[in-house]
Design a protein around this nucleic acid. Structure first.
Lengths: 333, 333
DNA sequence: TTTCAGTCTGTGAACGTTCACAGACACTTC
DNA sequence: GAAGTGTCTGTGAACGTTCACAGACTGAAA
């Protein structure tokens, strides 16, 4: 097969110089309509496609962005949220001809790799996903001249890494308020890990509504897995057998909670009302289907990308974006 | 902040030439232990990191591969399989210092973008995921000098794109055989789309065991969504009210089937046994938990990567890999 | 007519690597 | 001691762009 055509070949065919072709490629102003047309034709004729490496070399830009998944537990990957995020981000970036490269930061070795990659200038931006409080990666980031954003606040670093997120706290309030309005009196909660925004903020929202009624006895912690939800529910039942509702910080954990309630012979929603969070696919496959809080995930992803692009384009500072959630009522409450 | 150090800076610090540093970087033989040590020290001292663009420019290699998600329906993203695949592939490739870039080929515009990207030599390899029969992308691929593999056979192109996959056909046989052994007599199936290997091969396995008993009346098609499974089950119940078992080609569709059976007042497993496929998270959250077929997804992903790396390293031809599945018995049968 | 501003084009240099080559040196082997 | 072989090193050229600059041309304003 023939050698790939370069900008020189295009220039020769179009009867113009290298420079003019380059100007067309980067749609600079100052190129005559005739030259523009000739170059376009030559590009089509030769099947030319730009060599990004060569461009990168001189512009010091790569045209790519890294999405870093922090993954302390396997569970992160069971989460359909990632898929939405990934799809949306890929799409939006593609519109700007920016490609998305995936990296995983599960352990310190991985993290070093990511840092080295970024320090090497191999990407124009980073996109942090589900980063936990205290992640070393975040600290390393401040020394590296690269645009960085996160999906979901990075706890303790809200002011250094801009982010877009659903309004976890208000979502939790919506659910808790709803349970109260339905006449529930002993409302418990199963939280996520408290070093994640979904863990900390949803608990705060819960406490906002219940005030002092949110006693320690009615609070239990899970790890976002189904099994974790199941055992957390079992512990709650033991400590507070009279509870009549539970707000679970994720649908997957809620599915586990339902299993524990069933095992304990409690009827849902008659004896105990169960509220989830996420409105993921699992919320529909449980029996009964879950009342839950929907997050505008797609919009969260879009806003995160928007922030990142703004930074790449040179914005000095961008403000975090927090988007509203919706209460979805089904049969578990 | 200071300019990023180049190979020249390292050479100066180490007291050797550019060439020697390059040799250390690419661990060529023929570099003296003294020079090697000096260069390593200089790299650490200067904080040097290789400029990939510059390397690419001369080697004509990019150090990256593209994962292309064909996504005719949203449902693909609800599938936890992707997550496993993505994670495993990213990990394995990172070991070889190859980065994974994501692209989505949902419509023809997207597909053109992918083709242009590959034609431009922006990646050393492609990784096709859930590509349907007749996808134009596959045909375009043969003209492009790039290593290509698929996860799961590309129907009709099994011989042009090497792949790794679970043994869909044998998995379906395992489940069907098991249902027969449990004494079920009127066994139906809900398939996936027949232009996907999971659709076609699982149906074949089903038919292998039942022979002529697999009448058209007992076969219904779904689209891998929960709702699709639900309506397919409803149609089956209408056509064959006496059925006493159903093999559903995915867990998610099986969750839908369970809902339809419940709505029709059938008890599971007493009246109707339900078998799924995938052993995904949803299989545990249904009530009752699903008997299903586990695919060795991680190994499938690893093998796919292995094939891809072999091709990138210059192998002329690699053989497809098909991996065994396991029957997981739970309470739905 | 001259001057100026604006538009358009071509050219040399630079970006940071790798690769092929040539040469230096140290051993063997004849 | 000459010739060969293997190891190690430095150097020039090349990869395919963009960018800054210089220069040519056009038309309007002085």
């Amino acid at each position: 097969m023939a050698k790939r055509p370069t900008i020189h070949d295009v220039a020769a065919v179009a009867g113009v110089s290298r420079g003019t072709v380059s100007r067309v490629l980067n749609d600079d102003r100052y190129v005559s309509p005739a030259a523009y047309a000739a170059v376009k034709r030559a590009i089509a004729e030769t099947g030319y496609v730009l060599n990004r490496a060569a461009r990168s070399l001189v512009t010091q830009r790569t045209g790519s962005v890294v999405m870093v998944l922090s993954e302390p537990q396997e569970r992160l990957f069971e989460d359909p949220n990632y898929s939405v995020l990934l799809r949306t981000a890929t799409r939006r970036l593609a519109e700007r001809d920016i490609s998305l490269v995936m990296m995983i930061a599960g352990n310190d070795g991985d993290r070093d790799r990511v840092v080295r990659y970024l320090r090497g200038g191999h990407a124009d931006g980073v996109f942090l996903v589900s980063t936990h409080a205290g992640d070393r990666l975040v600290d390393a980031l401040v020394d590296i001249p690269v645009a960085a954003v996160a999906q979901g606040a990075v706890i303790g670093r809200e002011n250094v890494i801009p982010y877009a997120a659903a309004d976890d706290r208000e979502g939790a309030r919506q659910m808790t308020r709803y349970l109260v309005e339905r006449g529930r009196r002993r409302i418990a909660t199963i939280t996520g890990p408290l070093d994640t925004p979904g863990g900390a903020l949803r608990l705060e929202g819960f406490a906002d509504i219940l005030g002092r009624k949110a006693s320690r006895k009615l609070i239990e912690h899970g790890d976002y897995t189904q099994l974790g939800g199941e055992s957390a529910m079992a512990r709650l039942l033991e400590r507070a057998p009279d509870l009549d509702a539970v707000f679970v910080a994720s649908d997957l954990m809620a599915a586990g909670a339902l299993a524990a309630l069933r095992a304990a012979g409690r009827r849902v929603p008659e004896d105990v009302a169960v509220g989830g969070f996420d409105d993921s696919a699992v919320a529909l496959s449980t029996h009964p289907p879950l009342t839950t809080i929907r997050q505008p995930l797609e919009r969260v992803a879009e806003e995160t990308v928007r922030l990142l692009l703004a930074l790449i384009d040179g914005a000095e500072r961008v403000e975090p974006v927090i988007l509203p959630t919706d209460l979805i009522v089904r049969e578990s409450t």
